[in-house]
């Protein structure tokens, strides 16, 4: 090997050589991402400036983007998305953080079991868990049955037929499905915090509450930022729950932007230009929110 190195190094330095082989290995992936992802994204951007039914498209400039502001269903969907975002994401992240710091305790028994149990919802299919939640909250479903037995209700309450309770069911479902997922990130983050820090805090007489807010949260900031951005992204693209749990109803009270995009493309007379414009608005929203979160959250000392 050493002889071989000597002969080639006369032509190329070692770092140059590594660069070339690095690029060589990157090429297939780059090529695939460009073909499968970037070109379609660019085509979608072009599409968002066109309008027409099905295949008969013509250029329309920013017409589609102007339309968005007048679309009552879209504005309703946007509002719904932000309701989910503002209520569900903070609750879920806080819950995940609390669970993670509880499960990080060295003296806790059956830790593996608890961790698996909390993470398990993530392994269920989006469609099937949505359908199970739908039947749980049916008029004669399990939740109503329990509430009637406990004497809170006389007859079953139709959770999915009222705007606020339907949104609440979706938020509950989301929390159930995604808390464990975020918890795993926090658990991973917690492994990087020296356990002796906690022991020192305990010796100094800090309460668990204080330890959580003064040690865990500040030290986990990068992870919290990551989960916050991922959750924002996921919530703005919410689709399965709206379609399968409530079908957007009652009266569009739970419809999400992605659900509306789907309707525009496949259920209604296809208006791909307008649907593409809507998708780009979601992209812009996610980018702006992520940027704001980075600015607010990532104050490195």
């Amino acid at each position: 090997m050493s002889r071989a190195n000597k002969t080639t190094s006369q032509k190329l330095t070692l770092s140059k050589k590594q660069n070339i082989s690095g690029w060589f290995f990157l090429m297939p992936a780059t090529f695939l991402i460009a073909i499968m992802s970037f070109i379609p994204m660019f085509r979608a951007l072009l599409l968002s400036f066109k309008t027409g039914v099905g295949n008969n498209l013509k250029w329309a400039g920013i017409f589609n983007y102007q339309r968005l502001g007048q679309d009552t269903v879209f504005i309703q969907a946007l509002k719904n998305n932000f309701i989910y975002l503002l209520i569900q994401v903070p609750i879920m992240l806080l819950l995940a953080l609390v669970l993670a710091s509880m499960l990080n305790n060295k003296h806790l028994r059956f830790k593996g079991l608890f961790r698996t149990a909390i993470f398990l919802p993530c392994a269920t299919s989006l469609v099937s868990y949505a359908i199970i939640f739908r039947s749980l909250f049916a008029v004669d479903g399990l939740v109503n049955l329990i509430l009637i037995r406990l004497g809170f209700l006389e007859v079953g309450y139709n959770f999915l037929a009222h705007p606020n309770s339907a949104r609440m069911v979706i938020i509950l479902a989301l929390i159930w499905r995604w808390t464990g997922y975020n918890m795993v990130f926090y658990l991973a983050g917690l492994q990087n915090i020296e356990y002796s820090v906690y022991e020192a805090a305990m010796i100094d007489g800090a309460s668990p509450f204080k330890t959580f807010f003064k040690i865990t949260v500040p030290l986990l900031k990068p992870t919290i930022l990551l989960t916050a951005i991922m959750s924002t992204n996921g919530t703005l693209q919410l689709f399965d729950e709206s379609v399968n749990l409530t079908n957007g109803g009652p009266a569009n009270a739970t419809i999400t932007m992605s659900h509306y995009i789907y309707n525009l493309s496949f259920k209604y007379v296809p208006n791909f230009g307008y649907a593409a414009a809507m998708s780009y608005l979601i992209l812009i929203l996610v980018a702006v929110l992520a940027f704001v979160q980075m600015k607010v959250g990532d104050k490195r000392d």
Partner: peptide, 30 residues
């Protein structure tokens, strides 16, 4: 369907139908 849900919950039929027509007209525009 949206109008119907609101009407069942007690909304006024005429104004709900107006809203429905506006929605459809909007979605037909290109």
């Amino acid at each position: 369907a949206t109008a119907l849900t609101n009407v069942v919950n007690g909304a006024d039929i005429t104004s709900e139908l107006q809203a429905a027509e506006d929605t459809v007209k909007f979605q037909m525009g290109q």
